[in-house]
Design a protein around this nucleic acid. Sequence first.
DNA 1: TCTAGACATCTATAGACAGCATGTC
DNA 2: CTATAGATGTCTAGA
Length: 754
Amino acid sequence: MKVTDLSGLPDGVPAHLQNQGVEELYPPQAEAVEAGVTEGRNLVASVPTASGKTLVAKLAMLSSIERSRQRGRGGDGNGTALYIVPLRALASEKADEFAELERFGLDIGVATGNYQSDGEWLGDNDVVVATSEKVDSLIRNGATWMQDLDCVVADEVHLVDDAQRGPTLEVTLAKLRQRLPDLQVVALSATVGNAEAVADWLDAALVDSTWRPIDLQTGVHYGNAIHFDDGSQRELAVGSKNQTAAIVEDTLADDGSTLVFVNSRRNAEASARRLASVTGGAIDAEDRERLREVAGRIREVSDTETSEDLAAAVEQGAAFHHAGLASEHRSLVEEAFRDRLIRVISATPTLAAGVNTPSRRVVVRDWQRYDGTAGGMQPLSALEVHQMFGRAGRPGLDPYGEALLLASSHGELEELFDRYIYADPEPVRSKLAAEPALRTHVLATVATGFATTRSALLEFLQETLYASQTDEAGRLESVTDNVLAYLDRNGFLEREDGGLTATRTGHLVSQLYVDPMSAAEIIHGLEDAGAEPSALGLYHLVSRTPDMYRLYLRSGDDETYTEIAYDREDELLGHAPTEFEEGEWEDWLSALKTAKLLEDWADELDEDRITERYGVGPGDIRGKVDTAEWLLHAAERLAAELDVASTTAVREARIRVKHGVSEELLDLVRAENVGRKRARRLYDAGVETRQDLREAPKSTVLGALRGREKTAENVLEGVGHPAPSMDDVERDEAAIPEDDGRDENRAQANLEDF
DNA sequence: TCTAGACATCTATAGACAGCATGTC
DNA sequence: CTATAGATGTCTAGA
């Protein structure tokens, strides 16, 4: 099918596609059009990565907007298309990709937790890209523009299988469909075992294809050769002993790049270090210079050990990639890899699910992963491995892609072929009937008035994928009843003759988007607290909710934190478990460890000291701080609702953790361009408030900011200084901070604990 | 007695959404 | 209950 054959699209779209070099649709795209995506028909497309799913989505959205415009005749059609993604990083990536549609008069908006273009004005956009949680939250908070949706696209819909976040996507789609009977639903999925079941659930046509625009060869490396799926073999030059190194070397000889997937952060870092010695020799002077530049920018992001290790590897053309990295680190690495500067990345699965980083070769080095709940190593699913494989081959750039597994014995070679090369991906199974998932969604469904009786609630749940998949008729009902009882018991909703009403607190909890169990824990803690709970007490309280991903206890931590638990017993809120209740006690301690990290951050301890002390990466600090801030915001609202005395203390603890400063700096950090470090330097030089900043001698400010004129000007400008110019200002030597020395002192008090 | 290298033992384990109101080094 | 890489500790042979 040619693009010129397309109809029902805004004027100029086929011509625009031709300009981009698209003449002919890919076979799965043509199938989608034949199935009616451009005519408002529901569609499930189960196709491999990079086989043109995005164009299918664009065609669906463009045609639905065009239809809406026709209906609105004359006026600017007020319909909207919603594109749901699983990750925030993907939201901005997709929005950038859709930006080209602006030439057809479409506005693109983004809505995620940390970035929202225009509140209620979101509805003025023609296309909104959002995470599933954000969409759920928008529904809960009654965003009116959702009533005007014409088309919703759910990207990576196979993630409904995910135990934590899958139910959100599932319930969100079910709600949208129930509320808007004419809504067109397009679901894009990786190839899965039961795409037809998903299609049935959504009353959709199905395109189920394994077609790829670029050849993908899969195989297993064993001994000194790669055994491909088509029976062919490739002998590698004898050189490195290490399997991964041998493959990377071989790829380099062909001027290609390699993506190595491993099963832990530590392995990713170690592997990058080793592979750096392989890539280091293959880099010419010009690339080396550019790599040094990238390494420099990496070092600027933070001065932690992780940052330094990464920069050192990057200088050699290698890198690691995992969730402990700051997001700036991640994007620098991804960008340099796409620019073919970095030749090899050792990564945890972050990269498989995330943004677009294709590579000539993909090596799945570790096919098993530690899983504490299963008691040991578990094999990856075929679906996961296939997703990683899908990163192989850059359409239009590489002649082909290769995806490899590594075997260390002949038996393993055969097992890998059976398990991953020849195997079909697993079916998608809904995880909705788990209490944690239903807890939050049942409350939201009642609070938003979607269901006002028990039977209406059950009827709604019948519209989910879970209901269409289960044979156990009573299961959903009994879990729902458990959940209703829990919500009732905690005062979030009331049951009367089968009628369901959310209480005020219940409404608030639903809108705050926290797990009702988190809210219950916070409420108990706050009721137990006096007017002045300590910051540590509050950090501990939010750290032990199910919404906080706690730090692991490592060997020795047990004693350390048990001691702290007793030392600061009276600061901790709520009912403490005893040392003999093993599971609970351990949970209490890991929450305490997390709380200590937050306290250290709010006590202005240096980032690198924190990463060292808690064995985390710079990205982890950011993540914990973010989550804590969010939960403390919820706690603040709950405290106000309950009218307990601690509201002010909660707010202060929240703002301190947000900025990472102690109380005395709170005024300063509110100034533009002033963060925890600059605020501390200014304060120590005697500039203690924003008012001081305007009135203090400019030489003092310049000295405190270590003589950076431009920075000093920006800071003064930010607080409305009448004459921010630093021309002819001499820095005041007395105000210059003595670097490092002071930070060490500040850490002292805490160090004694360790 | 010292040291390099072989060998044994120990240790630790992926990912990341949400509210709200504005701005890091 | 399952594994494995890397760090650290211990042993041994050779000087």
